[in-house]
């Protein structure tokens, strides 16, 4: 097959003002403008969004799941980072 596929784009949608953009899926488009138009048709037919970001999938770099332990476990034993680690006397208010 000599046919070239349109590039793949990842789509992020802000569902309403004040919220962040969230990944919703991907689609193919020849360029960014078409990707945004297609994202409008594919992912926001029922008022799911007020703003769209598209990023060509090849530009997304992801962490490796095999590294998950080394990557995230160091946070496990640092419970002093959470407010519940500390006892506050009952009589103290507004803390």
């Amino acid at each position: 097959m000599t046919q070239k596929e349109w590039p793949l784009w990842e789509v992020f949608i802000r569902s309403k003002q004040g919220l962040d953009h969230k990944h919703v899926g991907s689609l193919h488009a020849a360029d960014a403008e078409m990707a945004i138009q297609n994202a409008r048709d594919v992912y926001t037919r029922r008022l799911e969004g007020v703003s769209i970001w598209v990023v060509e999938s090849k530009h997304v770099h992801a962490s490796n799941p095999d590294d998950a332990a080394a990557f995230y476990e160091p946070a496990n034993d640092k419970i002093y980072r959470h407010p519940t680690f500390y006892t506050v006397p009952d009589s103290i208010k507004h803390m």
Binding site: Q3, K4, W6, A30, D31, M34
Partner: peptide
Amino acid sequence: AWVREAALAHAEKR
């Protein structure tokens, strides 16, 4: 097919 090809060519040109 021609639409897919034309869109790619247009994107490339831009």
